[in-house]
């Protein structure tokens, strides 16, 4: 097993979760109202994957991290002003749509093509990371198809922990029902991990890290190739917000037991 890795993280942007997300019908299909105008963040699931990748790379000198991202170029650039400050990586930007109404098979094809085109990529050291699912859509299908297209058969989904053993093999903890984990061992690369939340906190912003990343991020954005996601054959019979809505309220000094009781009651109404 190698002692350093080529880690490719797939991840894009989603609307800031604090924003009001209102489905609307457009001539090209469903969308979120004013989505392009709303502030965006790196998809939290992909964010966990990126931070885990950077952590792993730091522990194994000689490793390299790429972030392959499909999204509107200008929007990606805005998000990079935050993300690029957190950990070192090289951005591979693809100019295209991002959101919950794009066909995941097409997105997976574009991502896989971009990964295959990475200069100097060593598949015997390759780890493909990404979010197990996405904040825009919880289908959990994209990353699996990326792996299939790359011929990666060792795939793990809902990953919370990846531990490299002294012999180079690694142990993976995948989420299963009941708050438990399935423990797997993997002895060869390439492999793919769809991350759940992992265990790492979000790294703080550091503009000096950002300035270093920007040397490659800006050129990558400038040469981002446009990709067409046609959504051919995809129809959405209906789009609606979840019926069960939680109204935000501010209550100070509420005992934890009361908070828990209220949440249980709320879940029970569904």
């Amino acid at each position: 097993m190698p002692t350093s890795y080529h880690i490719v993280v797939c991840g894009s942007i989603v609307p800031d979760p604090l924003q009001t997300l209102e489905p609307v019908t457009t001539p090209t299909g469903p969308a979120l109202k004013n989505e392009l105008l709303l502030p965006a963040v790196l998809d939290p699931w992909a964010g966990h994957a990126l931070f885990e990748a950077a952590h792993l790379a730091k522990q194994h000198p000689g490793s390299k991290v790429w972030l392959v991202s499909i999204g509107p170029k200008a929007k990606l650039q805005q998000v990079m002003m935050t993300v690029a400050q957190k950990v070192p990586f090289e951005l591979i930007a693809i100019d295209g749509p991002a959101g919950g109404f794009t066909e995941s098979a097409e997105i997976a094809a574009a991502l896989a093509e971009a990964i295959q085109g990475l200069p100097g990529l060593d598949k015997s050291r390759l780890l493909v990371f990404g979010g197990w699912e996405s904040a825009t859509r919880g289908a959990g299908t994209t990353l699996q198809m990326v792996g299939e297209r790359l011929g990666i058969v060792d795939q793990f989904q809902g990953v919370d922990q990846l531990t490299v053993r002294p012999d180079g093999s690694f142990q993976v903890l995948e989420r299963i029902e009941g708050g438990r984990h399935q423990v797997s061992s993997c002895g060869a690369l390439p492999a793919l991990c769809g991350w759940a939340t992992g265990n790492l906190p979000e790294p703080p912003n550091n503009p000096q890290v950002g300035m270093l990343n920007m040397r490659t991020v800006m050129p990558a954005l400038q040469r981002a190739k446009p990709t067409k996601i046609s959504n051919e054959g995809v129809t959405f019979p209906s789009v609606s917000l979840p019926k069960q809505r939680r109204e935000t309220k501010i209550v100070k000094d509420m005992p934890p037991d009361d908070i828990a009781r209220e949440i249980v009651e709320w879940i029970g109404k569904e």
Partner: peptide, 28 residues
Amino acid sequence: LKTLPGDDVRQIMWRYQDRYDLQMLIQS
């Protein structure tokens, strides 16, 4: 007006759309 003006709008109005160092400093 559709949404409250975001960073991409302010960067143009306040003339730092080409200053990535400043954009990152703002985020941090």
